[in-house]
Design a protein around this nucleic acid. Structure first.
Lengths: 116, 116
DNA sequence: ACTTAGTACTATGTTATACAAGGTATTAGG
DNA sequence: CCTAATACCTTGTATAACATAGTACTAAGT
């Protein structure tokens, strides 16, 4: 059992949350998303991101439009739909709840345990 | 795209972390683990927990011994191995890092984004 | 003795996502 | 034309959570 694998598993779901947040701040294209996540020490690669963006698009959470770049190939800029914004709000609650619950477990909740 | 699905994905990896923590506090059997996680609002079911405990056992992170119960079937009490303790310490760092990174993204890190 | 209920554990197929790997396409420069 | 940089795309693999369907043990009721 490798630590790297558990880290990968931990990222599941969280990447989607982070991506939605990044997009919620204003239109952005894939490479910049990767750049920001990587800078924040969250590992994500194209093979993960593009299918994720496709899923989000298909679910109606994001939209995109092509923008010609000054130099290099055109870029797909993503924006959040209204549905996406609502979904993100739910994820906000989910994340806070999950972090709170997990911290409750890891900070040694003896009371709960002893009273089984 | 359903919120429940993303929540399930978010739990991946985190459940393993929480379980290891619960066990690290002293021997405990499966139903009590479920009880504690459920009380902390982290959903987990037998179909998830037992295979997880099996994986942890196979990976040498936990051990177990049978204990006859006063009433009802015998129970499998789990304890953390030394390897398990070390693994847990790595997961502690992983979790803190992941939470820190995610919060950095969701609390609107404009500076990073604007300087692309 | 048999049945039911509660409890504990087991196994397996399904689902969904992160990732590795291998691409295609556009633009710019040599 | 070829190479390099950049952007996007696809697909198969690996993994874990979960639903489902059990088996097994103990106690209580009939």
């Amino acid at each position: 059992m490798k630590i790297e694998n558990t880290q990968v598993q931990m990222r599941k779901g969280i990447l989607e949350y982070c991506i939605l947040h990044i997009i919620s701040r204003g239109e952005v294209y894939a490479s910049d998303m990767i750049e920001e996540l990587t800078s924040a020490k969250i590992m994500v690669v194209e093979g993960t991101l593009y299918p994720l963006l496709t899923r989000l698009r298909k679910a109606g959470l994001v939209d995109y439009h092509w923008v010609e770049s000054l130099s290099g190939p055109p870029r797909k800029y993503y924006t959040l739909t209204d549905i996406g914004k609502q979904f993100l709000e739910q994820l906000d609650e989910t994340w806070q709840s999950l972090v709170g619950s997990t911290n409750r477990i890891i900070t040694n909740n003896y009371k709960e345990h002893k009273e089984k």
